[in-house]
Design a protein around this nucleic acid. Structure first.
Lengths: 197, 197
DNA sequence: CTATAGACAGACAGGTTCGTCTGCTTTGTA
DNA sequence: TACAAAGCAGACGAACCTGTCTGTCTATAG
């Protein structure tokens, strides 16, 4: 048998993969739903649309995500991971100002439509809603990370420094969502120096 | 005849008004829809719900607002007016820092769930969408107002000062939406001094 | 006293959404 | 080879949403 089908014992990623997309259905759903939700909003994209664009059966979808909210929360968690692994150099032990500037560079990318977590909190306004809570948890970690960088950098009052940089960065994300490439970010470097230095 | 019905020639607002709510249907709709949309989102509140809570007939609603988006945009415009007329003393020729602190005081009110205009832009993410455009127009005026205050105050670079205060205030609104009363606003006064002074 | 404008009440149509369910096929493993 | 797990395809129901339409009532203007 192995002589008749020599590929049987090869690792899957070397086969000519009979399936159109070798990724698991769950990965495909997440990969499709993330950008879709980001661009058109959670309430603006229906489950049927995600299913169609992911090329997945409805039963498969609901096996992995019992409800739409579960998919949304999974997208939020995945987005946090993708951001942190996307640019490893900016997520290491980078000084506060460099890290903040790196975040602003991301926000200024042409395809950026603002902060996905802010969007989650806006669309699901109730603090008790699981989606809001998931986004809040991410932002709490972001704030803690900024404070930690301020402390590592030896700033006088690291909590206060982290907080004010956090608020400013949140403002940058908001402005990008509102004004797109026309956001008033002409002097963000100087602003950050004023906030950190 | 007039002796039989002496009230017939009196102005309407002196009559014992037979209708339950003397406000026009349009006003009632706007008064109900604004808070409803603010708390639960535009897409989270249906036209039927607005109609029911306003005590208005469906035909009446659609006479005043040909489509739901028209109501949403009217709510946005009305919100801008309400904010500016709500606290006249903070909207006069107030110095930049006082005005900014007044805004932050509003954001810290317990019932505040963040900036309604940010929410509009988040829920209707496409820049070309009329709702997004309406919210963007409001924020553009806010930014221009901050720059004008910076200029009136004689600051060195009023454009830059207005922009950085704008970004910081946007961050405050975002943080309130995300964290509610637990938002990290402990040192906003000092932060503002750092940004303005 | 009539006519007109506005409001009320609610049915209705057409579409969309979420989630369930039934069959059938493929894959991997014991 | 047999079985379990996962996936595909699509129908289906119940709820909801937007927007139209019919019909009735009241108030004010002519």
């Amino acid at each position: 048998m192995s002589s008749e089908n020599p590929e049987a014992s090869l690792p899957g990623d070397l086969l000519p993969d009979p399936r159109p997309d070798p990724r698991s259905a769950r990965d495909r759903i997440l990969a499709v739903a993330g950008p879709l939700f980001y661009r058109e909003g959670y309430r603006g994209v229906g489950v049927d649309r995600v299913i169609a664009e992911a090329g997945v059966a409805k039963a498969t979808f609901y096996r992995h995500f019992p409800a739409k909210d579960d998919l949304i929360i999974a997208c939020i968690d995945r987005a946090e991971v993708l951001i942190q692994t996307g640019e490893p150099e900016t997520w290491g032990a980078t000084p506060l100002s460099d890290h903040a500037m790196a975040m602003i560079r991301v926000a200024r990318q042409p395809f950026c439509m603002g902060c996905a977590f802010q969007g989650s909190a806006a669309e699901y306004g109730a603090m008790s809603h699981p989606v809001h809570a998931a986004a809040r948890a991410v932002k709490a970690r972001v704030l803690a990370d900024l404070v930690a960088r301020a402390r590592a950098q030896g700033l006088a009052d690291p909590e206060a420094a982290g907080r004010r940089v956090f608020l400013f960065l949140e403002g940058v994300w908001s402005a990008v969502r509102m004004f797109g490439p026309e956001a008033p970010l002409a002097d963000v470097e100087a602003d950050l120096r004023r906030l950190i230095g």
